[in-house]
């Protein structure tokens, strides 16, 4: 186990370096930081632009990209991050806030999805082919087929516009974390603002988990060792909880790990539509500004969390399932 973990962990760093390099090249090509700099500082002299290029390692040519990458990497690791192009502000404070907002939203939604989705999946798998199963299965399919922007906009239409029209007040606000101008921490207000985005994301994750759990549990229920367990005379309850459920949870755990890893990336569509200042919105704003110094650290966070949680998922899988031989 330890050897396997170590061997996988050794690969972490090269993977990170390679992927960040590829992203660096893609972003440099796509957003062209020098052009963005020129756009925001229209009156910058030729000398000033040359200075900017030299200071940030934005050299051109294939070799220049490699040299620029290492220059960027050194600055990143020594926490000497370049300021954003638009507004010339420090990147980390904003990134930190965005991350906190996204984690709050994403973790609550994942929690609901895992809890409700798995429960529905178990309910469906215990009576395959019956009404309950059909109901869960088809509503999950529907939930997956409804794009998040459709549910987001319909919820906004109902809660922001029509609720206001019918009852004279808005039940749930549809943008931000707090009302404009609010200062300090207020749990109730925060939850109220989170409610609709959480619903939008939960619909999707409940659908995913219920289908996954159902398939996984059906697989286990049809295996030989279930018959053996029943033949031994173990009570049905114990068979289900100790033998079936425990085994069915193995693949679901992997999915949950990957899901939590993806939370760091934020929920771009939901955050964009609800103007929720999380990682997704951070990306959208930085992308539309072509703000290379803001996009790179964002990417590194995402890549890091995806790679690390992938590793954790594999390790958890290996640890939970003794049948897996570690190579």
């Amino acid at each position: 186990m330890l050897r396997y973990t170590l061997r996988r962990a050794v690969w972490l760093l090269p993977t990170l370096l390679l992927v960040t390099f590829l992203v660096y090249v893609a972003l440099r090509l796509g957003t062209d930081p020098v052009a963005s700099y020129r756009r925001t500082n229209i009156r910058a002299s030729k000398k000033k632009i040359d200075q900017y290029i030299a200071a940030n390692g934005l050299y051109s040519g294939a070799f220049g990209y490699i040299r620029g990458y290492f220059k960027w990497l050194w600055g990143f690791v020594t926490l000497d991050w370049p300021r954003s192009i638009k507004g010339s502000r420090e990147v980390w404070p904003h990134l930190k806030d965005a991350l906190a907002n996204s984690l709050r939203l994403g973790l609550v939604a994942s929690f609901i999805g895992i809890l409700v989705g798995n429960a529905l999946g178990v309910l469906a798998a215990l009576r395959p082919g019956r009404l309950r199963d059909t109901l869960v299965n088809s509503s999950a399919l529907v939930g997956l087929a409804v794009p998040p922007f459709v549910s987001a906009l319909l919820l906004q239409l109902f809660f922001a516009v029509y609720w206001q029209k019918w009852f004279g007040y808005a039940l749930f606000p549809v943008s931000g974390v707090y009302p404009a101008g609010h200062q300090g921490f207020d749990l109730f207000l925060m939850l109220k603002h989170m409610a609709l985005p959480v619903v939008v994301v939960s619909i999707q994750s409940i659908a995913v988990y219920s289908r996954y759990m159902r398939a996984s549990l059906l697989d286990v229920l049809n295996s030989e060792y279930m018959r053996t367990a029943r033949a031994k005379g173990i009570s049905e309850r114990r068979v289900l909880v100790h033998h079936a459920l425990r085994n069915a949870l193995i693949p679901v755990t992997t999915l949950a790990f990957l899901d939590v890893g993806a939370v760091v990336g934020g929920l771009i569509i939901t955050e964009g539509l609800f103007e929720y200042p999380g990682m997704g919105r951070f990306f959208l704003v930085a992308y539309s500004n072509g703000d290379f110094p803001e996009l790179m650290p964002w990417m590194v966070l995402i890549i890091g969390s995806v790679v690390v949680f992938n590793l954790l998922a594999d390790i958890a899988y290996a640890k939970l399932d003794p049948r897996i031989r570690l190579g």
Binding site: V19, L22, V23, A26, L27, L29, G30, T31, D32, A262, G265, G266, I268, I269, G280, F283, Y287, I302, V306, V307, N310
Partner: peptide, 22 residues
């Protein structure tokens, strides 16, 4: 693996810009 691990929209937007510049 790498592409599927990225948030889909992010990958789409970044690659869109990249090809748009080529």
């Amino acid at each position: 693996d790498v592409f599927l691990a990225f948030p889909f929209l992010v990958a789409l937007l970044v690659v869109r810009n990249m090809f748009g510049a080529v």
